[in-house]
Design a protein around this nucleic acid. Sequence first.
DNA 1: ATTGGAAGTGGCATAATCGACAAAAAAGAG
DNA 2: CTCTTTTTTGTCGATTATGCCACTTCCAAT
Lengths: 332, 332
Amino acid sequence: MKKITILALRGAAASSITGPMDAFLFAGVLWNIACGQKPSPCFEITVASPDGKAVKCANRLYIEPHCAIHDVKNADLIMISAIAGDVERAIGRNKEAIDWLVRQYRSGVHIASICTGAFILAETGLLKGKTATTHWGYVDLFRRRYPLVHLRPDALITDEGDLYCSGGSNAYNDLSFYLIEKLSGRDIAVQCSKAMVQDFGRATQAPYAAFRFPKGHAEQDILAVQRWIEENYTEGITIAMLADRCAMGQRTFERRFKQSTGESPIAYLQKVRINAAKALLERPHSTFEEVTYHVGYEDISSFRKIFQRHTGLRPKEYQRLFQQRNQIQRAG
Amino acid sequence: MKKITILALRGAAASSITGPMDAFLFAGVLWNIACGQKPSPCFEITVASPDGKAVKCANRLYIEPHCAIHDVKNADLIMISAIAGDVERAIGRNKEAIDWLVRQYRSGVHIASICTGAFILAETGLLKGKTATTHWGYVDLFRRRYPLVHLRPDALITDEGDLYCSGGSNAYNDLSFYLIEKLSGRDIAVQCSKAMVQDFGRATQAPYAAFRFPKGHAEQDILAVQRWIEENYTEGITIAMLADRCAMGQRTFERRFKQSTGESPIAYLQKVRINAAKALLERPHSTFEEVTYHVGYEDISSFRKIFQRHTGLRPKEYQRLFQQRNQIQRAG
DNA sequence: ATTGGAAGTGGCATAATCGACAAAAAAGAG
DNA sequence: CTCTTTTTTGTCGATTATGCCACTTCCAAT
């Protein structure tokens, strides 16, 4: 029976504490109950807070932990909950936990972080030179604070053998099942995921992420071009056209554009088009062919490749995730 | 700003309290933060327990509610958390809540149940003659206790206009997003689901459900046939063959089989085959054609239809959900 | 079982794009 | 004004994007 400790941070999202707890708790149990077999729990789960007192989570909800972090003995794995709200403030409020994590790690305990909990893990310094992930919306901040960590923004889970990270918010489920599989085998993990009515095959958080279209720079010409792209992406656009609009040499334009926005013109245009395509695919009754033409591409096959590179999913799969359904069982 | 109350039951699964809370809490907030816009919360969420004191959840975790149910004023919607463990005992321990729910409903508040929370909702009597759903593993118990409720075991969500139910465990996410869509519009709901890295397009919990193969009866002949089917389903099987094995007339056999197992022989055989097909599809590199032949069908096209009827998904989609992936980002 | 439409894969050719390097221009220092 | 340093611009070749075609698979309906 493996021992899991969940580090309940001050300012955590409550569900990032209870979610993993329930996932591990239900392993070997919920499926068995549902199928009329005898439950056989696989894990012992302890929720620990920095000082052993109730932890104030988002929405002013208090969770009473089982103990303080210093009372934790012989954990096999520690899971760091997600910070809701101001990450940098939360780091300051959880200093003891950071030191404690380092000591635990040195004594052989594995550590996994959830969503913005990766900031706490990075703060320990243990991630230096290693691969990590966090919520897609916090990538810039993370890179700025921890340039030595190799961040994989599109990964849902990273595995360094003894350090794990998971992507945004509800990716704690994927991480939990991944760890359950590692610790108790695939069958238990699949059964647990099915009993919890939760998929267990996601590979990336790319499809969930929003693109940034940086407008925070001062280059008026470039801003104008950005706006123009966003209004005219349905038509064929070439770099030459864009350069002309700024009265620049093409090569110069490319450089200036990249410097201002962080993206090359094509990459930017692609993002705008992918973004539009996503929105179109979310509507019912859309085919990828229509969408392709509508966002300004001529060829389904090549746009499909681009779409896949950006979202990590085939068009049909993307639709499955977000397409509007009209068939909820109404009054029967 | 709509007011949501979450009813924290004694003996609840903690994540069924905090999960919906965070979903509503993040609506209009998390996406905005992630995209660098100003957060604008859509909901005010209150967690209420029967007596206002901390609620003991599964794994002996205590959650402190914001208030007692009797302090709740002007709620628009009440969400009933899920019971973990012994449902009938939990009903006894939460009597006050049941009366309170009835009064709230009569005064115009909408009510939604999560997973086994449907038992509490059914206990109020409000579901009589209406459509409901609950965790797929609790269907038999539910039908026995509440025969007048029209249970849709495969539905992930049911909507009676002012009464909602959701299926197993993590279906609280789907329900939360569904309600967010109803109350704040589709855009907010989709953004919230993406920010939480959670899909928003699931329609049924059928793919997650396990079949029961009832062996609890005393008819030795029938039991023998059941076992025989489970060992020989890869071959062509006809009812006549099965009847012969029991030395019964075919019609008699069918009646006896159904009486003992609750299923017709064909339905039973189908379930066994679907079950095997599911397991095969979960292995990497399996094609539906191979699987079809392997489980004893001759025709892909017709087996596809059967598969869809039982699981609610096309074969390819099922694979996507549960097929083993080997590409977690390891030490970079 | 056949059929048709849509989804998805891969190869190939061509045009577009971008990184690296170097030339040119501009700015600064003495 | 000359020399140095910095910035901008242009060129070349490698890489990438895109369109086109052929072909397979998936799926629904006949």
